[in-house]
């Protein structure tokens, strides 16, 4: 149910709970207000409906009531203001111990650069429990760096830095959106915030998991459900990938392309772009659901399907030590 009709966003930063608490307070207060007004209107409209022989009674007003329903709501609003301002103050004052990450926005991508030299595009890896400060600027127009699960947002302007800070609390993958309209592919200027346990993060920083990429890919291939359609026979709803890599493919629209890395990558991220002849565009996109690393792993696995001739058991080819580093958690919102 909640996968199709989510009613509340993930809480994955120290700020999220605080913003939600204030939001719930506002919901309650305004819910009560709305209810009172609706109740008053409905009750009065029914109680004093027009009836023969009953005239309206003229009432001019009441200064006491007027003052009452001006001052009391304003007092309540002041609590909104103060609580909201306190949160905003925290959001806008980065802790001094925060790790810095540089963000450069451009139409239509996010370029991330870690202090350690790691570079990413449309993806930001951060560890749980560490203060992270983003120092952001834009190469062209105004963008806005928005992480709903963290409840934070900051416009990214050309010609100056703006900053944003957070402390992630929950490992997982979360949406990154551009929230300021920026032209043609504004809705494509999205990405993932990948929050990792500190040890995973350290490992990621050190260059990724130690396990052979193709093995990770194979596990993912099953975990993501790819194998249910891309079967190793001709009965699947998707093409059999065995030996498909780097071979020419006839497409539904008559073109022929070579199934190289970019093709495999595109087929995972944008499956309807190039449909193989004889198949239906039924595959869902995995953009946002798989990380760059996972994507690389999947591509590596597809490549590996070219190696063993049909008879040999591919699985036994590489018994391999059990992967020492846990593959990062894949949490889909």
């Amino acid at each position: 149910m909640s996968k199709y009709l989510p009613l509340w966003p993930d809480q994955a930063s120290t700020m999220a709970g605080q913003v939600d608490a204030l939001y719930i307070y506002l919901l309650l207060v305004s819910g009560v207000m709305t209810l009172l007004i609706y109740l008053a209107v409905v009750v009065l409209a029914i109680r004093y409906r027009r009836m023969p022989g009953r005239d309206a009674e003229q009432i001019h007003g009441s200064t006491i009531l007027e003052i009452g329903w001006s001052v009391i709501p304003f007092g309540v609003m002041l609590t909104f203001f103060i609580w909201g301002a306190l949160i905003y103050f925290k959001e806008r004052t980065p802790p001094t111990d925060a790790t810095e990450v540089y963000v450069v926005a451009k139409q239509w991508m996010w370029k991330i650069e870690h202090m350690e030299g790691q570079r990413e595009i449309n993806e930001l890896h951060v560890p749980v429990g560490q203060n992270v400060k983003l120092v952001m600027t834009s190469q062209d127009v105004i963008h806005s760096f928005f992480i709903p699960a963290f409840r934070i947002k900051q416009d990214v302007l050309p010609g100056r830095y703006t900053t944003l800070w957070f402390k992630a609390t929950q490992a997982g993958t979360y949406h990154l959106f551009c929230a300021e309209y920026c032209g043609t592919s504004h809705s494509g200027m999205i990405g993932n915030i990948v929050v990792m346990e500190p040890q995973d993060y350290a490992q990621w920083m050190a260059g990724g998991p130690a396990a052979p990429l193709a093995d990770t890919g194979k596990q993912l291939f099953t975990a993501l459900g790819c194998s249910t359609c891309h079967r190793l026979d001709t009965q699947g709803r998707g093409p059999n990938l065995q030996g498909a890599y780097n071979k020419p493919v006839l497409l539904e629209d008559g073109r022929t392309v070579v199934a190289d890395e970019n093709y495999v990558r595109e087929s995972i991220l944008n499956p309807t772009a190039k449909i193989v002849s004889g198949f239906k565009p039924v595959m869902p996109t995995f953009q946002g659901l798989v990380t760059e690393e996972q994507l690389n792993a999947l591509v590596a696995y597809v490549k590996s399907l070219n190696q063993p001739p049909a008879g040999a058991a591919g699985a036994q080819n590489q018994p391999a030590a059990p992967p020492t580093g846990q593959p990062q958690k894949m949490q889909v919102q």
Binding site: S30, F81, W83, G84, E91, K153
Partner: peptide
């Protein structure tokens, strides 16, 4: 009333745009 949500700084940061 939802305008008050948007006037409240801490909420507006999340829901604006």
């Amino acid at each position: 009333l939802t305008g008050l949500f948007l006037a409240t700084l801490g909420i507006d940061v999340h829901v604006t745009d």
